[in-house]
């Protein structure tokens, strides 16, 4: 009877390096070689990595903290525009522009995070939906700041002084951020704050009885999620060298949403897997934009009806003992 307790003591660690991660990490690192440094493929791969970061951010918010967010594209956009504008107007290095993107996105999340305490389920969904649409509208109409529908073109993208504009470089930069995000999410889930998020999700009443400040915790979940999505947005701006309002909006939000639903809520591997599937479908069906939405939309419906745990459920059956 005590052996499981001993097991728990032994197996707990806040480390990042685990055997199961080495293989995917190795492939990811070697990918440029595998695709013979083809710039187009590297661009697609970098985009996938960036979307995986957003998927993780959304999973943190919806999966782990149980806060419905239909406006993730809003945080993504804030981060992208912050980075682009800082780059285009002040030629700021990514080392400054990316943290700025994170900070501004987190700040913008207060708009929805603050009322999140009082808003349940549907209302929160509607408010976050409105947020995403409002941000897209601001991007389109506040021409003085965002150049309206002409978009923002970035100058040379530098990280710590080094020119990293090429898809190959951005791929590795994004990958580094993704790995850091994975480590962060992994550790978060297994420590006090991550538990507090899950507690608020599962039972606000019991959580507050344990001393968890529910309102503040929800705001924090929004802020962290927004910061991550903001960084991802900044990375996308750096990768594409150009952003315009049509990159952000309801369609983008729906795609992010699809990633975490297909991947299964509250699962790091699921979020990444979901991002991969959405990216692949988007690439295959890229010719007719509508087709990818149709496929993914139908997939979401099927998943919700028949496979509620998404990819996470499938992973769990394959490796029942793995911790997340």
């Amino acid at each position: 009877m005590v052996s499981s307790a001993v097991e728990s003591r032994r197996r707990f660690s806040l480390g990042v390096v685990r055997p199961t991660l080495l293989a995917p990490l190795g492939i990811a690192l070697a990918l440029p070689l595998l695709v013979r440094f083809n710039a187009y493929f590297l661009g697609v791969a970098a985009e996938f990595v960036i979307f995986a970061i957003v998927a993780l951010s959304l999973d943190l918010l919806m999966g782990r903290s149980g806060q419905i967010s239909l406006g993730q594209s809003g945080f993504f956009a804030v981060g992208a525009y912050t980075t682009a504008i800082l780059n285009a107007r002040s030629h700021l290095d990514l080392a400054v522009a990316l943290p700025a993107a994170a900070a501004l996105a987190a700040l913008s999340s207060l708009i929805v995070g603050f009322p999140a305490e009082r808003l349940r389920g549907h209302y929160l969904g509607i408010v976050t939906l409105g947020f995403g649409v409002a941000v897209a509208q601001i991007a389109l109409k506040w021409s003085a700041l965002t150049n309206g529908d002409e978009g923002v073109r970035l100058e040379t993208v530098r990280l710590f002084g080094v020119d990293v504009g090429a898809p190959l470089h951005m791929y590795y930069v994004a990958l580094a951020v993704l790995v850091a995000t994975i480590a962060f999410s992994f550790n978060l889930a297994r420590t006090r704050l991550g538990r507090a998020f899950a507690a608020v999700r599962d039972s606000e009443i019991a959580a507050s009885a344990m001393g968890v400040p529910v309102a503040r915790t929800k705001m924090l979940a929004f802020a962290i999620s927004a910061a991550l999505a903001g960084v991802a947005g900044g990375l996308l701006a750096a990768l594409d060298g150009f952003i315009a309002p049509e990159d952000f909006g309801i369609t983008q939000t729906l795609l992010f949403f699809a990633m975490v639903i297909v991947g299964g809520l509250d699962s790091i591997a699921g979020a990444i897997g979901g991002a991969l599937i959405v990216e692949i479908v988007s690439q295959i069906a890229a010719a007719t934009n509508g087709l990818s939405l149709l496929i993914l939309g139908s997939t979401i419906v099927v998943v919700a009806l028949y496979f509620p745990s998404g990819l996470k459920g499938i992973f769990a059956r394959l490796a029942p003992d793995a911790e997340r």
């Binding site: 999410s185 550790n187 006090r192 507690a199 959580a207 344990m210 968890v212």
Partner: peptide
Amino acid sequence: DNVLVGLHAQTRTGLDGALG
């Protein structure tokens, strides 16, 4: 983890936990 939440008020780790 359920029981650990019971210790929420007596512990202080926040984001520093996520950073390891």
